[in-house]
């Protein structure tokens, strides 16, 4: 008994020591905001590890800023943001194993390779750590919840709506085409489904072709060039992968069709800034990356407290109440970057 006690106090001292070392600004333990919870770790200080696909990428850095904001707000979350600078999945596995050995409370993973990370995520779960995914998902048995940035329906709708707006609103008329990643890409095919479902809202717009670019910017360039030649009435191109988007925009720019054919798609402001300022692209669509990181930390806290339930709701600070659909915590909502607001965003 005595030994156990002294071991316990030793461990407590160690925990205090490490917590004090690594994050002096979040030392205050216990927070009134968490008192509604009933799980075993309710209100206690927990360690949350946030793993990006790749560290040092503006997109993920922006997510981590939101995560830090949430950790500060909660006050009882020590946030560790670390990931492979190379984007190497094997490095991500090593980090997950290490966090498992440390016995952290929650690991939130944006898997850069779900197949490779899966076994490590399972090892973490076997060790009693809560594992959730954010930004991208992995197999359902490797995690409890996914923090989902936007539904395919929202993305599809918002792509079509902004295209219509770019082409003159309800009276928009002309041919439109889709340049996708590969014809088998799961995300893109979901989006295409909802693009097709939304298009009838604008009777003037006609979808004439869907072409793959195989995640190759040069191919996206030539495919877009071919489209403009094949369809003289082409007014808009949905370039729905981060690689296809700049490729398609470059084809329009070099073809001298700026202002005649508009490209829209999903990307970060930094990647498309020049095309937006040059007028090749009127709108770039994305979810709010800071909010994604912010929500992930709130979801992690709730998962640790055992109050995150499938098909329930989650109170997430300034984001208000968020829906949990199945095991997906929905962020929802997209932002559109245009010439007017793109200067405010740097990621």
């Amino acid at each position: 008994m005595k030994i156990q006690l002294s071991l316990l106090s030793l461990a407590a001292m160690a925990a205090l020591f490490t917590a004090g070392c690594s994050s002096p600004e979040t030392k205050s333990a216990g927070d009134p905001k968490a008192e509604t919870t009933g799980g075993p770790s309710a209100g206690k200080k927990i360690t949350v590890c946030l793993l990006p696909k790749k560290k040092g990428v503006p997109y993920f850095t922006s997510c981590s800023e939101g995560a830090e904001e949430a950790a500060k707000e909660l006050g009882n979350v020590e946030l560790i943001y670390d990931g492979p600078t190379s984007g190497d999945a094997a490095d991500a596995v090593k980090l997950i194993d290490q966090w498992t050995a440390q016995g952290v409370d929650v690991i939130a993973v944006s898997p850069n390779d779900p197949a490779v990370l899966g076994p490590a995520m399972k090892r973490a779960r076997d060790a009693g750590i809560k594992v959730i995914t954010w930004d991208a998902d992995s197999a359902v048995d490797t995690r409890e919840f996914l923090v989902n940035q936007a539904t395919a329906e929202e993305i599809g709708n918002s792509l079509v709506d902004s295209m219509a707006k770019d082409l003159g609103g309800d009276k928009a008329a002309g041919d439109v085409a889709i340049v996708t990643a590969t014809l088998t890409a799961a995300n893109q095919n979901e989006w295409i489904k909802y693009i097709k479902a939304r298009l009838p809202k604008y009777p003037g717009l006609h979808l004439v072709a869907t072409k793959p670019s195989n995640e190759d910017q040069k191919l996206a360039f030539s495919v877009t060039q071919d489209l403009t030649k094949a369809y003289p009435n082409l007014k808009g191109v949905f370039a729905i992968s981060s690689v296809a988007f700049p490729g398609a925009a470059e084809a329009i720019k070099q073809g001298g069709m700026t202002g005649k054919v508009f490209v829209t798609g999903l990307s970060t402001p930094n990647d498309m800034r020049n095309y937006v300022n040059e007028g090749v692209v009127k709108s770039v669509i994305l979810w709010n990356t800071k909010d994604l990181g912010y929500l992930t930390v709130y979801a992690a806290r709730a998962a640790a407290d055992g109050v995150l339930k499938a098909d329930g709701t989650l109170k997430a600070g300034r984001l208000g109440e968020k829906k949990v659909v199945g095991d997906n915590v929905m962020l929802g909502g997209t932002i559109t970057f245009t010439k007017d607001n793109i200067a405010q965003y740097n990621f």
Binding site: L10, A14, T18, D97, Q98, T100, A101, Q102, G103, R123
Partner: peptide, 18 residues
Amino acid sequence: ALEPKFVTMRAQGLLATH
């Protein structure tokens, strides 16, 4: 001294796989 949890069989066993 710095990270007592690091020098345990459990942690070392997990990390050794690397």
